[in-house]
Write a protein that binds this DNA or RNA. Sequence first.
DNA 1: GCCAACGTTGGC
DNA 2: GCCAACGTTGGC
Length: 153
Amino acid sequence: MHYWLMKSEPDEASIDDLATATGQALPWTGVRNYQARNFMRDIMRIGDGVLFYHSSCAEPGVAGIAEVASTPYPDPTQFDPASPYFDPKSRPEAPRWTLVDVRFKKKTRLIPLGELREHPELTSMRVLAKGNRLSITPVSTDEWRFITTRLAR
DNA sequence: GCCAACGTTGGC
DNA sequence: GCCAACGTTGGC
């Protein structure tokens, strides 16, 4: 069992979009970073906990709780020339980009990035590291517990 | 819109 | 394999 923080731009897919999606689940399309891909491909398991994070928006922060809902499979957008995530170098017989489905669990209050930084319990969170740009980062069990039991209301 | 930080590309 | 140039991320 692992825990994760996954960034999504609310303009593209917000926590409300996830809650109202068919089956309350969405394929995590568009990851084009090998480290983030490898987390999904190699380490994630169905049922892993996910902090759903809103990024590149007016109020960046944790917006809800979700869970990993599928085993890894090829991201279909890599083969779609009309998609912004199209990757001409990826071939169907050897897909380069893999994703998982993520399912809604619950909405939380918006826990702002600045508030996460205030808590000594969270200072080693990967997402808070200087210069971090990874869209998927591991969350420790202690960090998960602190955020879901103390901060999420 | 700015820009720091980082990842990728490609010439050599 | 090195590394400069370039593109992207994402908070502010």
